[in-house]
């Protein structure tokens, strides 16, 4: 079961932490960067979405692994909710990325989507998670559903680092670290790192809060209706 006391403490910490991140993200100045200008601040908001999605995928995969070991319905609920909130952060990441690129690199071109390798791979990853949710809804018997979807979820977790990280780095892209582009560490000002790393911690914390909240509701629902879907 969820430790409600710990949840409350972490929730309050995360809310305070993210408020500071938001203030620091807008108020701290750094040397002006060509083309990017203030949109460089999106580093604090767009990029942590992907770190959070990756963290969520590992949490989800870990619980799917435990489902295969123990068959515990709470593990199944945790795997499903972590995947749901992780996909939610992925959708936020891709939407914020579309807005960022549209008004920074694609000005005057009317382009909203330019088939950047990262965009394509991330779309595939989101479709894999879509497949996970559809697979779950297609199976009626709870025990079988938990085990079969756990295997699929482990596959989704394994694919994610390659689709989000390894393959896009081999190709030409807007993103740093891609073929011909310098890596993040070579071009980012120390002031930006001061906000960026805590922002990752903050958004992973936000994931934990939203995920735990859903696990609490889903577990309550399971105890009342014996239905682990939510």
């Amino acid at each position: 079961m969820v430790n409600v006391k710990r949840y409350t403490v972490v929730r309050n910490l995360v809310f305070g932490w993210l408020t500071v991140i938001l203030l620091a993200g807008f108020l701290l100045n750094f040397p002006k960067i060509n083309i990017l200008e203030h949109t460089a601040r999106n580093l604090y908001f767009h990029v942590p979405m992907w770190f959070t999605m990756m963290a969520a995928a590992f949490v989800s995969g870990y619980h799917s692994w435990k489902v295969l070991q123990t068959g515990d319905p709470l593990r199944d609920i945790r795997a499903l909710q972590a995947a749901r909130v992780g996909t939610f952060f992925g959708i936020l990441g891709i939407t914020t990325g579309i807005i960022w690129s549209r008004f920074t690199w694609y000005v005057g071109t009317d382009v909203w989507w330019n088939f950047d390798p990262r965009q394509i791979m991330v779309s595939i990853q989101l479709l894999i998670y879509g497949g996970y949710f559809v697979l779950r809804s297609a199976l009626d018997e709870p025990g079988k559903r938990a085990k079969i979807s756990a295997v699929f979820n482990l596959f989704a977790m394994t694919a994610l680092p390659f689709l989000l990280y390894v393959i896009p780095r081999q190709m030409e892209s807007l993103h740093p670290g891609a073929e011909g582009n310098p890596a993040f560490s070579q071009i980012t000002h120390p002031v930006m790192r001061l906000v960026f790393y805590p922002a990752i911690i903050g958004f992973v914390g936000l994931f934990w809060v939203l995920y735990t909240q859903r696990v609490r509701v889903a577990w309550l629902k399971y105890r009342v209706t014996q239905d682990s879907e939510m």
């Binding site: 990017l36 690199w105 009317d110 310098p182 071009i187």
Partner: peptide, 18 residues
């Protein structure tokens, strides 16, 4: 200025500007 390569338009693009 911090030197950066973020500001190069992705070379695959071939779109008219308006």
């Amino acid at each position: 200025t911090v030197s950066t390569a973020y500001d190069s338009l992705w070379t695959g693009a071939d779109i008219p500007t308006q």
